Simulated assay, not measured.
Amino acid sequence: MADLKKKKIAAIAAVNAYLQDEEAAAALAVLDAPAEPLVGPPLWALSGRQEIMQMRRFIQMKAF
């Protein structure tokens, strides 16, 4: 009976140690994660908006 109790205690201790290691690894992964690069709007979107603004300016100047 005492042998079974020791085995249970050892198993519980092993599971607790494993969970603590996993939590520590997860915390380090969060700290070591590279920051996401700053990405602006796509160039196609900027080009389209610029074209719209240019056409509007032409219409306002009545050059179209």
Rank of each mutant, 00 (worst) to 15 (best):
M1L: 07
M1E: 06
M1Q: 05
A2Q: 01
A2T: 02
D3W: 13
D3N: 08
D3R: 10
D3C: 06
D3Q: 13
D3Y: 15
L4V: 07
L4M: 08
K5L: 14
K5D: 15
K6D: 10
K6T: 12
K7V: 07
K7P: 00
K7I: 09
K8M: 09
K8C: 04
K8V: 04
K8G: 01
I9S: 13
I9N: 12
I9C: 09
I9L: 14
A10E: 08
A10P: 00
A10Q: 09
A11T: 05
I12R: 02
I12V: 04
I12D: 05
I12S: 02
I12L: 02
A13E: 13
A14D: 11
A14F: 01
N16F: 00
N16A: 07
N16E: 07
A17H: 07
A17D: 10
Y18R: 10
Y18D: 09
L19D: 07
L19G: 00
Q20W: 01
Q20P: 02
Q20M: 04
D21Q: 12
D21V: 11
D21A: 06
D21F: 10
D21H: 10
D21E: 13
E23M: 08
E23L: 08
A24P: 03
A24K: 13
A25C: 07
A26S: 02
A27C: 07
L28V: 11
L28A: 10
A29Y: 01
A29R: 12
A29W: 00
L31C: 04
D32H: 06
D32L: 02
D32R: 04
D32S: 03
A33E: 05
A33H: 05
P34A: 04
A35M: 02
A35H: 00
A35N: 01
A35I: 05
P37K: 09
P37H: 06
P37L: 03
L38Y: 14
V39G: 01
V39E: 08
V39H: 05
V39L: 08
G40S: 05
G40Q: 09
P41K: 12
P41H: 09
P42N: 09
P42V: 06
P42I: 08
L43H: 05
L43P: 03
W44G: 11
W44F: 11
W44M: 15
W44V: 15
A45H: 13
L46S: 08
L46D: 11
S47N: 09
S47L: 10
G48Q: 15
G48N: 15
R49S: 12
Q50C: 05
Q50Y: 14
Q50H: 12
Q50D: 11
E51S: 10
E51C: 03
I52Y: 13
I52K: 14
M53I: 14
M53A: 14
M53S: 14
Q54C: 00
Q54F: 00
Q54N: 08
M55H: 10
M55R: 14
M55P: 00
R56Q: 13
R56I: 06
R57Y: 15
R57W: 15
R57F: 15
F58W: 15
I59G: 12
Q60A: 08
Q60M: 09
M61D: 04
M61V: 08
M61N: 04
M61A: 06
M61C: 05
A63F: 00
A63Q: 02
A63D: 02
F64H: 10
